[in-house]
């Protein structure tokens, strides 16, 4: 009887492991196929049926694909936009969260509830008017158009306010007694304590810039390379040979080049990302 029970236990455990590993393999296939194809020779990539594995790896494809586009420029643009919008976001959210968490002023809770309510609104409703605003301000095809709307976020304010609220009020009152100004207290005490949350905000905001496609596509013109971001650059890159046929190994190399930096960020800072994400609804 006892033996039987043990047998069932191991059978069930093995089944769970088998199914989980099977699912993990399915989830991983796109990454595998992307990297494998990126490393295949021009000949191997057009084999029917395709090889599932090969030792004939062509790392040069990455260099060729990189050089066939303006990736250097797109990278620089994206880093610049990510840096500016992330810096702006951190400044505005830290100040606003502090106001909501510590300061007392008329209408504080009403304003906070109103802001929370705006998180329900689909971005598509906002994008239309923002598009008109940017056009009217004649900011289309500028970095300002790509940065300004992303310099704050209601969700991050909400997120950081929660963290600020957990810091005991006694610290604040003690600082008041010592004559420390609010701003100094925020900078010297609250920000250092809330560092993990702020780091989460920085990472999520930077990833947002890296993956931005729709808005940049709307407010910059396709022909303007000087303000093009990485996703838009990848989409508009042709990756074709002299005859105009798609070079799939280059295309996959391009996708890999865009994917790898963000995967590295994810793997090194995983805990901060998951912390933020499991509390949010950003990204469908």
């Amino acid at each position: 009887m006892r033996e039987n029970y043990k047998l069932w236990y191991y059978l069930r455990k093995s089944l769970v492991y088998f199914l989980l590993i099977f699912a993990a393999v399915l989830v991983f296939i796109p990454f595998y196929w992307m990297i494998l194809t990126a490393l295949k020779s021009d000949y191997a990539v057009e084999l029917v049926p395709p090889e599932m594995f090969t030792w004939d790896l062509h790392f040069k494809n990455f260099i060729d694909a990189y050089k066939s586009t303006r990736f250097d420029l797109y990278f620089r643009n994206t880093l610049f936009v990510a840096f500016c919008s992330t810096t702006g976001t951190v400044i505005t959210t830290v100040l606003a969260s502090f106001a909501f968490a510590r300061l007392e002023f008329k209408g504080r809770d009403t304003i906070f509830m109103l802001l929370l309510a705006t998180m329900m609104i689909p971005g598509e409703m906002l994008i239309i008017t923002n598009f008109v605003t940017i056009k009217n301000w004649q900011l289309d095809d500028t970095f300002a158009a790509l940065i300004l709307p992303f310099m704050t976020s209601v969700f991050y304010i909400f997120f950081l306010r929660q963290t600020f609220k957990q810091i005991p009020n006694e610290l604040y009152l003690a600082a008041k007694v010592d004559g420390t100004s609010d701003f100094k207290y925020l900078l010297k005490i609250m920000v250092p304590i809330a560092k993990p949350t702020i780091l989460t905000i920085i990472i999520l905001s930077a990833i947002g810039s890296w993956n931005a496609y729709v808005w940049p596509n709307l407010v910059t013109s396709l022909s303007n390379e000087s303000v093009k971001l990485i996703s838009n650059g990848l989409r508009s890159s042709a990756f074709v040979d002299d005859l105009g046929r798609v070079k799939y190994n280059w295309q996959m190399a391009g996708s890999t080049i865009v994917t790898i930096p963000i995967l590295i960020v994810f793997l090194t800072l995983k805990k901060y990302i998951i912390r933020g994400v499991s509390r949010s609804g950003i990204k469908g």
């Binding site: 890296w210 996703s231 996708s255 994917t259 963000i262 995967l263 960020v265």
Partner: peptide, 12 residues
Amino acid sequence: FFLPYVTNVIAI
């Protein structure tokens, strides 16, 4: 299982 979360929609 978390990998797809951070990927670029256009690239993938």
